[in-house]
């Protein structure tokens, strides 16, 4: 800590002297990334934004306007998809983060058993989502699938997990939790390892119980990690929809339709690139806002530490 305090003014002096050089150097170091980002992120995003403001319907000349956004907000499929995405995000992020944190707490000690258990929890991360989807079609098979086979042993009737509009989203959520919890647990393990043991020892001496230590020490110090993982999880829930494409196609009755799948449908099935672009703009805007908020929290956490 004192190191940083001492280094800062010294650095400031040096910077003032060779500022243009530093800026040039920074530019040089950033150029490879910036060129790639320009080609594959900024250019497409600008294209999408322009297209979202271009009104072009079948056989008509294009013109400027917000017609696409008007149509988007009037489309009941879009509101269903947005609502489903919200349910899906809440339904996956909250349980998988909570579970990941609990598992990280339980399994942070090194040992043969904990290593084995950690490995098992992380394994789903390592198989492709398309393959997961194929496996889970079987697992959810009504009557003969893995779940119903064992539930039947407990005397329960067969359930149409993916074919019932009230259950399908829950089934998709379960798959995502299974797939991603281990990934988030790894970040929490790393975060927990970064909390000095002395804090806990000191609190113990002061007579703090396990719950108090969790709420007063562990959770606040993990704040930035939680912020970071929340962003990753948020992005994952929005873009990882291979299993929706393979397993339900957004159905039954639109009950598992998500924003990205809606975009895909508008662009590729309905050939309505205006509507697809408008939905993309809304989606990216919302994500950006949420991510910046979470990352700000993270940045602050890091500043407090140093």
């Amino acid at each position: 800590m004192s190191q940083a305090v001492l280094a800062a003014p010294a650095l400031g002096v040096r910077h003032r002297r060779i500022l243009p050089h530093t800026t040039l150097l920074a530019l040089g170091l950033l150029t490879p990334s910036l060129l790639l980002l320009a080609a594959f992120t900024y250019w497409p995003v600008m294209g999408v934004t322009l297209r979202s403001l271009t009104q072009q319907r079948f056989g008509q000349k294009p013109s400027w306007g917000i017609d696409n956004f008007v149509r988007l907000f009037a489309d009941p499929h879009f509101s269903t998809a947005a609502w489903n995405t919200l349910l899906y995000a809440l339904g996956t992020i909250v349980p998988s983060l909570a579970l990941a944190l609990l598992l990280a707490l339980a399994l942070r000690e090194q040992g043969r058993l904990t290593t084995l258990l950690r490995t098992i929890i992380v394994m789903p991360l390592l198989i492709p989502l398309v393959a997961v989807a194929a496996l889970f079609i079987f697992i959810f098979l009504p009557g003969g699938g893995l779940i119903d086979y064992y539930l039947a042993a407990l005397g329960m009737a067969q359930t149409n997990w993916l074919g019932d509009p009230d259950l399908a989203l829950g089934a998709i959520i379960a798959i995502t939790i299974w797939k991603n919890t281990g990934y988030y647990m790894l970040f929490f393990l790393a975060g927990l390892a970064g909390i000095p043991e002395e804090y806990h020892e000191a609190a113990k001496i002061d007579g703090a119980g396990i719950a108090t230590r969790f709420w007063r020490i562990t959770l606040p110090l993990l704040g930035p990690t939680i912020g970071f993982v929340a962003v990753i999880a948020l992005v994952n829930t929005l873009v990882q929809i291979d299993h929706v494409i393979v397993m339900t196609g957004g159905g039954p009755s639109d009950s598992t339709n998500m924003i990205l799948y809606y975009i895909y449908q508008q662009a590729e099935q309905n050939m309505d690139s205006g509507l697809a672009s408008a939905a993309t703009v809304i989606c990216v805007g919302a994500l950006l806002a949420l991510s910046i908020i979470s990352l700000r929290a993270l940045e602050q956490g890091i500043h407090y530490e140093s």
Binding site: I137, P142, N160, L162, D164, P165
Partner: peptide, 19 residues
């Protein structure tokens, strides 16, 4: 007939399994 949506693949499997 079972209620809800039955996937074509699921239908085949039910037929194979005698369900």
């Amino acid at each position: 007939m079972p209620d809800g949506v039955t996937d074509a693949g699921v239908a085949s499997n039910a037929f194979f399994a005698g369900r």
